[in-house]
């Protein structure tokens, strides 16, 4: 094992053991996101050292903790079964408030989420659409959504059919700029469609996608489920 590899392996071991200070921990965690070798070393150490966990006596958590977790995740199980409509994204905001410790990581994740607001009433000040896209399951297939972007980069999504989604899933809207490889989340869809803000200046030719995600949207910031509908914005 080379010196560098051995150093990384020991760093991984210290990370798992828990002896690193705050900034050292953050550095290792950040590096492991892109360094597969370091990542594997951490996984191996997690397995090696995990039997030590039996040394720690179990402690019954406070009785209200389960309720707090449920609140953070959205509707409780019982209420969920009775609800015909899918939960709106706003309800999952409890999650963002509830996760106290993960603050900065979540702030970063939240920064790319543009929440879909209800379509405002169309008034005289409303901008005319400057580009539009039809989102379909296959190019030229039956349209599922009509997307209209105005000159301010506002995107309005109109559902054209009813898209049924299992109660434990949500649909999420993504934008992929021309030549881009990283779709950007525009938010979790509501049955009634909504308004999202597009990354400016990259409108024409931009691809829009709707993917199937766990409830509340992709946990990673990138699509994790199949892309169900897609279409490309064209200037009007």
């Amino acid at each position: 094992m080379s010196g560098v590899a051995e150093e990384d392996d020991l760093r991984a071991a210290e990370y798992v053991l828990g002896t690193l200070d705050e900034s050292e921990r953050a550095t290792v965690a950040r590096r492991a996101e892109t360094d597969d070798v370091l990542n594997s070393a951490i996984a191996a150490w997690e397995i090696r050292l995990s039997p030590l966990a039996v040394l720690v006596s179990p402690v019954t958590p406070p009785p209200e903790l389960w309720r707090r977790i449920e609140q953070s995740l959205g509707a409780p199980v019982v209420a969920e079964a009775r609800r015909p409509a899918r939960r709106s994204f706003w309800e999952s905001l409890g999650f963002w408030r509830g996760v106290s410790g993960a603050g900065f990581a979540l702030a970063a994740a939240l920064a790319v989420l543009v929440l879909l607001r209800p379509v405002p009433p169309t008034g005289p000040s409303a901008n005319l659409p400057s580009a539009s896209a039809v989102l379909a399951a296959s190019p030229g297939g039956p349209p599922a959504y009509l997307a209209e972007a105005d000159t301010n980069g506002r995107l309005t999504l109109h559902p054209l059919t009813h898209v049924a989604v299992a109660s434990d899933r949500d649909l999420e809207l993504w934008a992929l700029p021309v030549g881009g490889t990283k779709p950007q989340s525009l938010g979790v869809l509501r049955a009634a469609g909504g308004v999202a803000t597009l990354p400016q200046a990259t409108q024409a030719g931009m691809q829009l996608m709707v993917s199937l995600e766990p409830r509340g949207g992709s946990p990673t910031g990138a699509p994790t489920g199949p892309v169900l509908f897609a279409g490309r914005l064209a200037r009007l």
Binding site: A29, N39, S185, T220, G221, T224, G225, A230, G231
Partner: peptide, 25 residues
């Protein structure tokens, strides 16, 4: 479309406990 309509490879990517909430990638 430049983008494939399904991304099965992404559907079940193993993830581990050491991963923080990941930045979009």
């Amino acid at each position: 479309l430049a983008y494939p309509l399904t991304m099965p490879a992404l559907a079940r990517t193993p993830i581990r406990g050491n991963m923080p909430l990941r930045r979009p990638s």
